[in-house]
């Protein structure tokens, strides 16, 4: 992994953790069974996060995903998957 990507990954992870209301553990769950957010909570969280990403990185990204509400492979299931998903979006 090159250094700029690593730096970006850390920034994204930090912003996610700062936006998530109750984050504990190494890879806190976000949405789905046993996770803290309901669907309106997820919408609120993503709206806040988009705003912070724009503020910090100066990039207008849209965190919509066709897999958002699916239980298994949703990029919103935990902090690690969401970090990967956003880093991928930023690379596009």
């Amino acid at each position: 992994m090159t250094t700029p990507t690593k730096g970006k990954t850390e920034t994204v992870r930090r912003l996610i953790l700062a936006t998530l209301p109750e984050a504990t553990g190494d890879n806190p769950p976000i949405f789905g069974a046993g996770a803290p957010l309901d669907s309106l909570g997820l919408v609120n969280f993503l709206a806040d996060l988009e705003y912070r990403l724009t503020e910090e990185l100066g990039r207008e990204i849209v965190l919509a995903s066709d897999r958002a509400m699916s239980q298994g492979r949703s990029p919103f299931r935990d902090v690690a998957s969401l970090t990967d998903y956003i880093v991928e979006l930023l690379a596009e």
Partner: peptide
Amino acid sequence: CREVAKTMVR
């Protein structure tokens, strides 16, 4: 709707 509602929901 999607973009403006995000800001309204906040």
